[in-house]
């Protein structure tokens, strides 16, 4: 005995996740172009770890393994972990990150659809707190030697010493923070941007192209109706407006909006992380508030915090507020005068 509706749109969780993975590829392509193939190794490593962990946990939880392993959600999480971790991070760091994301952040909370926090961001925060140094070793732009990168990732595994000096370089955000906060130097933004090899035309060198890749993929996701415009627009707009305001107050100390947008995790966050439906707000107004809040917190951490990039912390903090945001941003139901506030009409 079936019940209505008897027809369903050909949509599935699998298809949604697959499209997200596809949308990530332009950014990944740019990543490989500027920073070498190490990221591909990390993506593969993360994917295998995620699928294995997912299958194991599903088995332990007596859930249908095949149905869930093939839903693609673990792959999306794995890719986001890999893309937010340094590409030359040692292999075990990535593995630990993915395990944290899949086992702790996802399945301990009940699995697909139940996690209150973005799993990839939980992994990032856990690892940056536990291994701040390893999480800050980013590769030199346009340094393509795969063998050296391979050594950096798997060095420890084969008894080899990890040779990092040649390839490690401060990220633009790191550079900015270190220089600006150094009381010895009287540096200004303009000065740093001119000197440092790490800065490109609009953002971080190389990173600006990766960000552009994410932007293209993200716009495609909106066109495909996988995500709505609310979160990316609110995120980018808030970041731009607030960064510009800081920049206008003190152009010497605060970088411009385009620098912030095309550096670090901003674009990835705007289109792929803040838009995670499970841990994010779901009402239209709630999405705007959620994304604006995340952008604001991220910028504050970037400008004043101890960590170079604040994306992960910003997202997790806003994840905490999601139930409250959703509850108070209920849209007006058809024909009703006022929206249900906190689920209750006044």
């Amino acid at each position: 005995m079936t019940s209505s509706p008897h027809i369903l749109q050909p949509a599935s969780v699998q298809r949604v996740m697959l499209k997200v993975l596809v949308a990530l590829t332009p950014g990944i392509a740019a990543y490989v172009w500027f920073f070498g193939a190490a990221i591909l190794v990390q993506l593969a490593l993360a994917s295998v770890t995620a699928l294995a962990a997912e299958a194991l946990i599903l088995r332990l939880r007596h859930k249908p393994v095949l149905l869930f392993v093939t839903d693609g959600s673990a792959l999306v999480t794995a890719w986001l972990v890999a893309l937010t971790f340094p590409p030359i991070a040692p292999w075990w760091l990535t593995v630990c990150g993915v395990l944290t994301a899949i086992v702790v952040a996802k399945h301990l909370y009940g699995g697909l659809g139940q996690n209150p926090f973005n799993p990839a961001m939980v992994a990032f925060c856990t690892m940056i707190v536990a291994f701040p140094q390893l999480m800050s070793q980013w590769p030199h732009v346009e340094f393509h030697s795969f063998s050296v990168q391979f050594n950096a990732i798997f060095g420890g595994l084969f008894g080899l010493q990890r040779q990092l000096d040649a390839i490690v370089m401060a990220t633009p955000l790191d550079a900015l923070r270190t220089v600006l906060r150094d009381p010895e130097q009287v540096a200004t933004i303009a000065g740093i941007l001119g000197e440092h090899a790490t800065f490109g035309n609009i953002g971080g060198r190389g990173w600006e192209w990766v960000a552009a890749g994410y932007l293209v993929g993200g716009l495609w996701l909106i066109q495909q109706r996988i995500i709505t415009w609310h979160i990316p627009v609110a995120f980018i707009a808030t970041l731009a407006i607030v960064a510009t305001a800081f920049n206008m107050i003190n152009p010497q100390h605060f970088a411009s909006a385009h620098f912030h947008l095309f550096t670090g995790g901003a674009m990835l966050g705007a289109f792929f992380i803040a838009t995670d439906p499970v841990s994010g707000a779901t009402t239209p107004l709630g999405k705007l508030i959620f994304a604006a809040g995340a952008a604001l917190i991220m910028l504050i951490i970037r400008n004043f915090g101890a960590y170079p990039d604040g994306m992960a912390f910003a997202i997790l903090l806003m994840n905490l507020l999601v139930p409250l945001i959703d509850m108070h941003t209920q849209p007006r139901v058809f024909g009703h005068k006022s929206p249900p506030r906190g689920g209750k009409e006044p």
Binding site: A11, V16, F68, D71, L112, G113, T228, P277, G280, T282
Partner: peptide, 10 residues
């Protein structure tokens, strides 16, 4: 078979 809700908002 149905999957859990992922709050996608569709």
């Amino acid at each position: 078979p149905a999957m859990p809700c992922i709050r996608c908002g569709a």
